[in-house]
Amino acid sequence: MRCAAIIVAAGSSRRMGFDKLAAEIRGSSVLRRSVDAFMATEGITRVIVVAPEDRFASLGSDFPKPLLRMDGGKERQNSVENGLSLVMEELVAVHDGARPLVKPETIAACILAAREHGAATLARQVTETIKRSDADAFSRESVSRENLWFMETPQIFRSDLLREAYAEVSKRELVVTDEVSAVETIGIPVKLIASPSPNLKITVPADIELAEALLK
C-alpha cells in the first residue's frame, strides 16, 4: 500500500510573532526538516505541502521524490481536505509542519501500523499528574492519567477512510483539531504508536531553542 504525505503548513504563526516554519534549526528551516523526514522515509511516494506559495518556494527543489503544493483553507481540517484532493495513494500521512524532529524510522513504524489497522497515529502517553480546575483556575480534583495520551503526528490512514470521515465532519458541521478526531466520527479506532523520541510542536520562541538542544 503506497503512502502519500500531507504536511500542513498553512498557519499564520500568530502565537509565535514571526513565521515559525521559516525559523532555522541547525541550518535548516522547521518546515524543511519536516519535509526531509518524509522524503527519507521508505514507503512515502510523494509529499504534498499545504502552504502559501512563498513558504513553499522557500523549500527549494532538490528533493528525491515529487513535492507538490496546495492552498490552505479557513480551518486546519479544510487544509487537510485540500491536500487530500491530490492524494491517489492507498494511505495518507498527515503531519504538522511545525513538528521538525520526527524521524523517518518513526514515520515508517506508523505506516506499518496503518497498513495493518487502517488507522494509526504517533502519540505520547501522559505521565504528569493531571488536575481539573474550577472556573477560577483553582485545583479541585485529580484526573486519572491511565490510558491518557497526547496526540502527535504523523497520523496515517487509509485514504478512503479519511475522505469518508471528513465528509461526515462536513455533513455534521463539526470542527476537529486533528484527523484522529475526524475518523472517530465514523467509528474507526486508531492504533496509538508510542513516540520513541521527542516530537515537539514548535509553538513559542523557546521551542526553537529546545529543538536545537534536543538535536545536539
Rank of each mutant, 00 (worst) to 15 (best):
Ala108Thr: 02
Arg46Cys: 07
Asp71Pro: 11
Arg76Ala: 06
Thr121Glu: 10
Lys74Arg: 15
Ala123Asn: 02
Ile130Lys: 09
Arg99Glu: 11
Asp54Ala: 13
Ala137Ile: 06
Arg76Glu: 09
Val47Leu: 03
Arg145Trp: 02
Leu101Gln: 03
Glu152Asp: 13
Met39Arg: 11
Ala109Gly: 06
Leu91Cys: 06
Ile107Met: 08
Trp149Cys: 01
Thr153Trp: 08
Met70Asp: 00
Leu59His: 09
Gly73Met: 04
Arg132Cys: 03
Met151Asp: 12
Thr121Trp: 03
Ala57Glu: 11
Glu89Trp: 05
Ile48Gln: 03
Ser79Gln: 02
Glu42Gly: 11
Ala114Gly: 03
Glu42Gln: 13
Gly83Met: 03
Ala120Gly: 02
Phe150Trp: 15
Glu146His: 12
Arg124Ala: 05
Thr153Gln: 09
Asp134Leu: 04
Glu105Lys: 14
Pro100Asn: 07
Ser61Gly: 13
Ser34Asp: 02
Ala109Leu: 10
Glu146Phe: 10
Asn147Met: 10
Val126His: 04
His95Gln: 15
Glu116Asn: 07
Ala114His: 05
Glu146Met: 10
Gly60Tyr: 09
Leu67Glu: 03
Val35His: 08
Phe56Ala: 06
Val143His: 06
Glu53Trp: 06
Arg132Glu: 11
Val94Glu: 03
Lys131Tyr: 14
Glu116Ala: 11
Glu75Phe: 14
